[in-house]
């Protein structure tokens, strides 16, 4: 286990360094967020609270898919082969999930900030809303990271495969996130605890599955 942990730390540092060196990817994502928010603003100008929340999650969904899609494409096949000789497959997927969680957290919070400035913020319970956004970043990262590696391994048209493969999987999770985060406007309803439990369960099952399944993708 210490070896796994050491490898994860090493890989995350490597990813952070890469991200910092090629800042254009991160800047590109931030530009993507701002442009999308402007598109929403220009097309609706004013939103009802329920629609406000739905639009926010759609923006976050698209940004997350784009952010994670590149996580296995940044590096060449040759370099990936080199990592293969150095570290375990389990360390690769866990480090990617953790790294993507951090990346999505930063981008989501910035997105929420920009979105609130441009379109206002009807949220009543700020704390609950914050945790819903955090849970969203974690859920997206847990779901999309393995799908991104599947799309990357599939070869030719990854950019098209990523949304096709990930959107059907994320729909139920988005529905849960939406109902949980809407509670920050309207207050908790009777389903709240139940939905939260299922979302947390899914966030245990999906990383566990990624951990088990990724070695089969990595092996070649």
């Amino acid at each position: 286990m210490p070896r796994l942990l050491k490898e994860i730390v090493w890989l995350i540092r490597k990813d952070l360094l890469l991200e910092w060196r090629q800042r254009y990817a991160l800047n590109g994502l931030l530009l993507y967020v701002s442009a999308t928010i402007m598109v929403v603003y220009m097309s609706v100008l004013q939103l009802k609270p329920a629609t406000w929340m739905a639009m926010l999650w759609i923006i976050l969904l698209f940004v997350s898919v784009n952010a994670i899609a590149k996580s296995f494409l940044q590096e060449s096949a040759a370099r990936q082969l080199y990592y293969y000789t150095l570290v375990q497959a389990e360390a690769v997927i866990l480090s990617k999930i953790l790294y993507n969680t951090v990346l999505l957290l930063v981008i989501s919070l910035l997105a929420v900030l920009a979105y609130s400035i441009v379109l206002g913020n009807p949220v009543q319970h700020k704390g609950l809303f914050f945790w819903a956004i955090v849970l969203g970043a974690v859920s997206f990262s847990n779901t999309f990271t393995l799908v991104a590696s599947i799309a990357a391994k599939a070869g030719s048209n990854q950019s098209m495969l990523m949304p096709i493969l990930s959107f059907p999987i994320i729909i139920p999770i988005i529905a849960l996130l939406l109902s949980i985060s809407t509670a920050s406007i309207t207050g908790k309803d009777s389903n709240f605890n139940n939905n939260l439990q299922v979302l947390l369960t899914i966030n245990i099952i999906l990383p566990a599955l990624s951990y088990i399944l990724f070695p089969y993708l990595w092996r070649e």
Binding site: P172, L176, N191, I202, L206, S210, Y216, L217
Partner: peptide
């Protein structure tokens, strides 16, 4: 290999559909 991985991952991601949605 790849489609088997997707099949398993996607099947279990449908769990919330059965219980909550």
């Amino acid at each position: 290999r790849i489609s088997a991985v997707y099949n398993i991952f996607a099947f279990f991601s449908m769990i919330p559909l059965l219980f909550v949605v």
